[in-house]
């Protein structure tokens, strides 16, 4: 294991590259999920604030 982590002496380079890539990808995933969640939350809040007319509550078929 220690040998694997040492990467033949190139540990700093290999793990900085892989680590940073993993980090920014993780950040992007979290950010996108949070954005979707926030958008839906706001939608829900505005819907509760002003209930839509009953005709709109029916799930509509496409278009």
């Amino acid at each position: 294991m220690a040998q694997f982590l040492a990467m033949g002496g190139y540990a700093w380079y290999v793990w900085m590259a892989y680590g940073a890539a993993a980090l920014v990808i993780a950040i992007e995933i979290v950010a996108v999920r949070a954005r979707r969640h926030r958008a839906l939350d706001q939608l829900r809040m505005s819907a509760e604030a002003s209930p839509p007319p009953p005709s709109m509550l029916r799930p509509r078929s496409a278009r």
């Binding site: 996108v32 954005r35 979707r36 926030r38 958008a39 839906l40 706001q42 939608l43 829900r44 505005s46 819907a47 839509p52 709109m56 509550l57 029916r58 799930p59 509509r60």
Partner: peptide
């Protein structure tokens, strides 16, 4: 998906997502 919800706010079909 997030962009759709953000931008189509007020469109009636979105309410069904809730």
């Amino acid at each position: 998906q997030a962009i759709i919800v953000e931008r189509e706010r007020g469109a009636s079909w979105l309410e069904s997502l809730i």
